[in-house]
Design a protein around this nucleic acid. Structure first.
Lengths: 103, 103
DNA sequence: CGAATATATGTCGGATCTGACATATAGCAT
DNA sequence: ATGCTATATGTCAGATCCGACATATATTCG
């Protein structure tokens, strides 16, 4: 590939041979984890408020008990997507969810 | 959707409606999409505020122009995780994180 | 208008996340 | 201490999402 072509591609936003972490700054990573922990705490609180077991919650959201446990522990294998979907399935409003997400 | 595209579709006999109407989404899924659209809008607004192109934003968050376009369009292939990470990379903050920082 | 730039759309291999399962640990009655 | 129920942890194949790329369409500007 010629240099001029590389430059042209890079100007249009195409990466060429660079490997880097998406969240490299500590503050961004910390913020991401904190969002997850907040959502996880909300799921846990809502489940307790409903007085249901992790297994029962898993049934309602068509997941498994082990994944619910990981959700509430904000495990790294759990996405924010899953936490949000669970909260909504637990009856949380979009406003409640949004309050936990970055502005 | 752009105005010109709407015009083009309408010329071909398509009626323009909302995604929820078309898919007859259950309320939970509608709420999920709503959260996603709100985050997508925030990303779009933040990018415009910085006066940078999608390609430039892609470079900053180590992604690609096409994915940024899909993010701002709240494409179904885009997760809330990615939107949250992008917002944080764009300098968005969470109240919980702010509370953790020294005063 | 046409060219340059910006954004949208479609596809795909590889990376990440998922539910499911096995199993461990904890709490808590009897 | 033993059973019983709830929660935690580890693993993995399949599902989903990712960046990258190609290309189409839209917008801006001479």
């Amino acid at each position: 590939m010629t240099l001029s072509k590389k430059r042209r591609l890079q100007e249009r936003g195409w990466r060429i041979g660079t490997v880097a972490e998406f969240l490299k700054l500590p503050s961004e990573e910390a913020a991401y984890v904190e969002v997850k922990v907040q959502l996880a705490t909300l799921v846990h609180r809502r489940r307790l408020a409903l007085k249901i077991t992790q297994a029962e919650l898993a049934r309602r959201i068509e997941s498994s008990q082990s994944r619910v446990a990981k959700m509430e522990a904000a495990d790294e294998s759990v996405s924010i997507d899953l936490l949000v979907r669970s909260l909504l399935a637990l009856g949380a409003s979009t406003t409640t969810v949004r309050r936990m997400l970055p502005k």
